[in-house]
Design a protein around this nucleic acid. Structure first.
Length: 438
DNA sequence: CTAGGGGTATCT
DNA sequence: AGATACCCCTAG
């Protein structure tokens, strides 16, 4: 029951705010394979590690390690490296160096050692393998810092700047985006798949109404509510909430149960269609919940009571860096996409060559702008397009699109014209903004 | 084209 | 009232 294994891993991982258990260690202990599901698990473990270091306020060379590991994992997944990733790496590297600039003059050993260790060695390795983490900004920092060795005035200037906040901001942004890319948890994916299958079955039988309605509900409830990071108020005291929502993992379960119940209703409506499966789902869900409560009891006996957690899966991590504004870090998310198959043969053309990132070819030109109104052109009636909720399929396609093309909404749309037939590029952009909780 | 600010409907 | 999700407008 690999779903179960994955889910246990997810549970421990995603609920884990406890720095004593390093997610990456957990992952290796579980001996996960290399499937795409496992890849996603590994990615989320790294994300969790990064979150933890942010929570602890520990931005150090360990963070650089994590960012490098994350890059490799994303590479395996043939995902495009996000700008936030590059920026986070760049500013974290700089921050790691700046902390050794506490002597008034560069002549002390610490700074030169840090330069050597971080910029010559570590980043040297990145350059050798042609990593995309080596950005223009990174190179600029490198020359500035190295020049600072000889130039006391430059040294002073850099020494007095505070870039910690910048680093934190980019790290935070990276986390948001990556969590948003991960999408649903494995268990939810299973439920969703089931549900979509059921819907398909219903359509075949011409029985669309019930299925459509509940699918819509499932899509907008389970998916949009459960998976979308709730941008969780970072207005200051995010960090002392440690112990609440410890049961969020179970919340996920409850959610799953919800969904299967909903499935059951549909099942009932159609005269016991595969009743045994529905029954099995529910039993499995209940067993899973019990089991998880038990695990949780082992991990932290103090959290046993809460049996009725809120449904929203939200393992938000509130990072509360320096005083300032946009620090809402609603890091949230779940693992696993269901390895969608419609991803235009990832990296096919360029596989093998490890030199450099597999950059996807641009989509073939495709007629644009399917926006309903708008082209009525003149008259420019102030009629709004009717509001249309995003379907699961669209959201998944968007995630895949962002992985492939980054924030090139046009490319994403053209890369999947069928799914996005009724969306404009701006719609994609707006939806992504929602997903990352910005 | 994209990013970002704003508007509106809906829910709590 | 605040939060959301979607849609629209516009500067660069």
């Amino acid at each position: 029951m690999e779903v179960f294994d994955n889910w246990v891993a997810e549970f421990v991982l995603l609920r884990q705010h406890n720095p004593r258990v390093l997610p990456t260690k957990l992952i290796s202990a579980l001996q996960l394979g290399d499937s795409s599901d496992c890849l996603n698990l590994k990615i989320s473990s790294v994300l969790r590690d990064i979150s933890n270091s942010l929570i602890r306020g520990a931005i150090d060379e360990g963070t650089l390690d994590l960012l490098e590991v994350l890059e490799k994992l994303l590479l395996q997944q043939h995902s495009l490296l996000m700008e936030s990733h590059k920026s986070a790496y760049c500013w974290t590297a700089a921050e790691c160096t700046l902390r050794f600039m506490w002597p008034l003059i560069a002549s002390d050993g610490f700074f030169t050692e840090a330069l050597e260790r971080i910029w010559t060695k570590r980043i040297g390795v990145l350059k050798e393998r042609g990593s995309d983490l080596v950005s223009g900004d990174l190179l600029k920092w490198e020359t500035d810092l190295k020049n600072a060795l000889e130039d006391p005035e430059l040294y002073q200037r850099i020494r007095e700047t505070n870039i910690r906040y910048t680093a934190i901001t980019f790290l935070t942004q990276l986390l948001k985006e990556q969590w948003a890319l991960l999408g649903s948890s494995s268990l939810e994916s299973v439920v969703q798949r089931r549900f979509l299958k059921r819907k398909a079955d219903n359509v075949e039988r011409g029985d669309t109404n019930a299925a459509d309605e509940s699918t819509r509900r499932l899509e907008s409830d389970t998916i949009d509510n459960a998976n979308e990071p709730r941008g969780e108020s970072g207005d200051g005291n995010g960090s002392n909430r440690e112990n609440d929502n410890d049961v969020e993992g179970v919340g996920c379960l409850v959610n799953e149960k919800h969904a299967s119940e909903e499935e059951q209703t549909v099942g009932a409506q159609e005269h016991e269609h595969e009743p045994s499966l529905d029954k099995g789902d529910e039993t499995a869900a209940r067993e899973l919940k019990d089991y998880l409560l038990e695990i949780q009891g082992h991990i932290d006996p103090s959290t046993r009571q809460r049996e009725e957690p809120n449904n929203a899966i939200d393992h938000s991590v509130n990072v509360t860096p320096p005083p300032t504004r946009l620090n809402r870090t609603g890091t949230s998310g779940q693992d696993h996409n269901e390895a969608p198959d419609n991803v235009n043969e990832k990296g096919s053309g360029s596989q093998g060559t490890w030199s450099g990132r597999v950059r996807r070819r641009r989509p073939t030109p495709v007629p644009l702008n399917v926006s309903p109104l708008k082209k009525g052109g003149l008259a420019k009636s102030h009629v709004r397009r009717p509001k249309k909720f995003w379907t699961h399929e669209e959201v998944e396609a968007l995630r895949e699109g962002v992985k492939e093309y980054g924030r090139s909404w046009k490319d994403i749309k053209n890369g999947n014209p069928a799914v996005f037939a009724e969306r404009t590029e701006v719609d994609l952009k707006d939806k992504w903004r929602n997903l990352v909780g910005g």
